[in-house]
Design a protein around this nucleic acid. Structure first.
Lengths: 258, 258
DNA sequence: GACTGTGAATCGCTTCACAGCA
DNA sequence: TGCTGTGAAGCGATTCACAGTC
């Protein structure tokens, strides 16, 4: 899981479970594809397959939205596209700003998936003065000094942080102070925000680490036994660090913060 | 949640819950930061705060790995860094290939968080012949024709797909056929893979859609009442589409696949 | 006959609360 | 005394299985 909210204990939104909300975009994508092929109706089984979930889950999810299907027939594709879009709030325009126009920020600015779903890149912001004015994805980059002006001037409530980790919290604070209440964070840091502000995070290297865990497990199973659970290596003692500890695989790994 | 596996029913790995595995990289990041500041030990409370979780959860998580703490004291930072690294499989080198060197692929190739955690970008692959040989992040891009050779030649078991949606399944099939067993998918498509292959996905626009849902809810609450649950708009009938349906917010949204 | 909608059962994760140990 | 480690309780999500409806 690449993501998570900060705070908000058990405040389930409008009765729709969080897990369901997280799947609605998946259904929407699958439905949109069907819509383009002019498929009029679809069964829970078919749609579930297209979205990569099982049909019981899909039907349960849709039951939270209301009874939008027809027994014995299935779901009307166009109608469901509209209902889910509305439920997700995509029937309105969401101006977003992207802060930090490095490789990743530029990729995000160019990403077609945003614009096509009601998200409009209202501004690109970077701290590097030499970037100012340069167009990225056809939008001129503005300097961080303008941040507050841009947010309030465009009524931006969603911000995307693609800065280095060190700058993220500060940028976050300024975004929040200027009125942003939802943040998508690509920087590898835990952001702290006041109540009422939502944060979702995407950490590219975390996903790879989870894959590595399973990959290692596969390799271990091939060779029968489980990978040694608790190696007889040195245990903590009172002192810290530097005791040349080694594990079954070799040396202490070169782990560093991003 | 930005991510999910495909298949694998209830095969909990070595007794460590999936949810715990997904948090280990978070702990590792926080611990690495402490390690760099030469902090020798840390309590569950402190570490939990740094990782953005609560302390009960953290202790439970660590209890699945073994008893690595000292009652009355806390956890030895260096020792825990090593144990978690080992558990995640980061004590070994993982060659990865990135397929699709557009904006996003280039950003990934340049992303420092990979290399610093034992992931080595073994090759960059793109279908565009004019890209071939051009260096990105210091690594020359190779043509898709070389894919199989590259995978087997480097013993690559993890592949990253950053192609357009249309090419993703085909690339996936070739990666799997060549021996890749873990895939990180950035393309907005559901990939189908044989048993034994893990897929994790990151969809940038899905995260924004989830934020939009909550954002909309906040706005709705300000104005007291809930947003109308089931509008009296036209219901499906037998025929599909094009009936000029409108919702409370205006028109049918312009949703499109990425 | 086919497929949706949903109560009930189940599963897994989180949280509580305290026993166990340095 | 302070903090970890963990059974047990609580809770949300998934799955089952079938009644309801076209």
């Amino acid at each position: 899981m690449a993501t998570g909210r900060t705070h908000r204990p058990a405040t389930r939104s409008r009765g729709i479970p969080e897990a369901t909300v997280a799947r609605l975009p998946l259904y929407l994508r699958a439905l949109t594809a069907l819509s383009e092929r002019s498929v009029p109706t679809v069964s829970s089984e078919e749609l579930a397959a297209a979205a990569g979930v099982n049909s019981a889950k899909l039907r349960k999810d849709f039951s939270y939205l209301g009874s939008y299907g027809t027994r014995g027939v299935g779901y009307d594709v166009e109608y469901l596209v509209y209902q889910i879009s509305r439920e997700l709030g995509l029937t309105q325009d969401w101006p977003v700003v992207i802060v930090g126009i490095g490789n990743l920020g530029a990729a995000l600015a160019n990403y077609g998936g945003f614009a096509s779903r009601g998200f409009r890149v209202a501004a690109l912001i970077d701290a590097d003065p030499s970037m100012a004015g340069k167009p990225v994805a056809g939008i001129p980059v503005q300097h961080t000094d303008e941040l507050e002006k841009i947010i309030s001037g465009n009524g931006v409530s969603i911000g995307v942080i693609a800065t280095p980790a060190g700058a993220a919290q500060q940028v976050c604070d300024r975004l929040v102070a200027a009125g942003v209440t939802s943040i998508l964070n690509f920087a590898p840091t835990v952001l702290s925000v006041p109540d009422g502000v939502d944060v979702r995070k995407v950490d590219l290297s975390i996903e790879l680490q989870i894959l590595a865990f399973h990959e290692q497990r596969k390799a271990g199973e091939e060779a029968e036994g489980e990978p040694a659970a608790v190696p007889p290596a040195a245990r903590p003692g009172a002192s810290a660090a530097a005791d040349g500890r080694k594990g079954p695989d070799g040396d202490v790994p070169a782990v560093m913060p991003a």
